[in-house]
Amino acid sequence: MSPYVLSVDTSAIIVNATYLGETKGGQLPRRVAVSVRQGAADVTGDVDVSVTATTSAIDATYAAGVVTLSRIDGDGTVQVAASRAGVAIDSVRISITRKLDAPPPPAPNRVSTEAYTGDANSTSYQAAPSYGIVTVKSGADGSLPVEIYVDYLVAQTGTTFRSLTIGGKAMYRVAGSGGTWSDLVGDSSGTASTYLPGNGDHENGTFYVSQTPTLTPNTSYEVGLLLRKASGNGQLGYVSSLLTVGA
C-alpha cells in the first residue's frame, strides 16, 4: 500500500510589518492549501488534520483543506499534521517571518517649528496634525517638555468692535507607527486681539503654554501643533506660532 504524503502549497510565509513589529493592514488573513495523497488518490477528506503554532503570537486554524493564519504578531512556525484512526501519518512545517520596516533615524532631543495645522477662523480643530510635524526623542525619564507661543491680530474689518482669541493644542504619536494621534498638551488659549474702528486701537493677542508631559523613556515621537478660533466675532488678520518640543 502506498504511504500517505501530506503537502502544502507554500512552506514559507512572509508578512510586512512596521519597525515596531505590527503587521501592516492587508497582510491577513493568509491561507495555505493542504492536501494528503495516498499514491495518486487525494484522501484529504478522509484523514484528520491539525495545526499547532510554536508561539502564541500566531493564530492558525484548519478547515476543509485550508490552513488560515488570522494573526501574526511574531515569527515562528505552524506544524500541520495528518492522522488516521489516531495514528500519525505525516506532517510538515510552515515557517512564518515578518519583514520589518527600517526604523526611523534617531530623533533629536529638541526641535522647533513655526508651522501649524488648522484654520484659525474655524472653531473646530482638525482631527490630527498634517503639517509641520516634528520628530523628537523623549528623555531617559520619559519627560518631553513642550512650549507653545502664538501671537495674532484680528483683521481690521467692519465698522464695529472686533475681537478674536485663538486656541491651540499639541498632539503626538509614536514616530513611524502610523497610529492614532493623542493630545500631548490640551486645548489652551490666551488674551484676545481687539480692533476698535474710529480711534485706531488694534491690540494683538497672545498665548503661551509650557508643560512637561511624561511618556515612554527614550522613545521617538511625532508632534504637531493645531490651532483654532476659540472665541470672538472677528476674523484672523495675522498669526505667528512657535512650537518647541524636547529638552
Results as ranks from 00 to 15, higher is better:
S220Q: 12
S7E: 15
Y221C: 01
G167Q: 01
V8A: 10
S95V: 14
N199W: 11
S210E: 09
N233Q: 03
R110Q: 15
D187Q: 13
Y172D: 09
V134G: 07
L225V: 07
D90Q: 07
R228D: 01
Y19T: 10
S35V: 10
G200L: 14
Y238N: 09
Q235Y: 12
E222L: 03
T212C: 00
A115M: 11
A17D: 00
P217A: 11
T165M: 12
T77K: 05
V92C: 07
T77I: 07
S143N: 14
T194A: 12
T77Q: 12
R31S: 15
G190D: 05
S11W: 00
Y149W: 08
Y208I: 10
V51R: 03
T157F: 10
G142Y: 11
S70Y: 12
A120D: 01
I133D: 05
R37G: 04
G167N: 08
G167M: 10
F207P: 04
E147Y: 01
D201N: 13
V8S: 00
T214R: 14
T113N: 05
V43Q: 02
S189N: 15
E222G: 03
T10I: 09
E114W: 05
V43P: 04
Q156S: 13
G176V: 05
S177A: 13
Y62R: 10
A120K: 04
Y172K: 03
G132M: 09
E147N: 15
Y62K: 12
S122Y: 03
T61H: 11
Q235H: 09
I148D: 08
T219H: 02
N109D: 12
T61M: 03
V43S: 01
A41W: 03
G167Y: 05
P29R: 01
T10L: 12
G205E: 02
I14A: 05
S220L: 01
Q79G: 06
T157L: 14
I133H: 01
R37D: 02
V47S: 01
T160G: 13
G86R: 04
A82W: 06
G39V: 03
G45I: 08
D46W: 09
G178Y: 07
V239S: 12
H202T: 02
T44Y: 02
S122G: 02
S193M: 09
G168M: 10
A192T: 12
K24I: 08
L242G: 00
V146N: 08
G205M: 05
S124P: 01
T157P: 02
K229Y: 04
S143F: 05
V136S: 08
S231I: 04
G176F: 02
V239H: 04
R110W: 00
G205V: 00
Y19D: 12
D75P: 02
D42I: 02
Q79N: 15
R173E: 00
Y116S: 12
S143P: 05
G167L: 06
G118P: 04
D90H: 11
G167K: 11
V43L: 00
V92M: 08
A64D: 15
S95L: 11
E114G: 15
V154F: 11
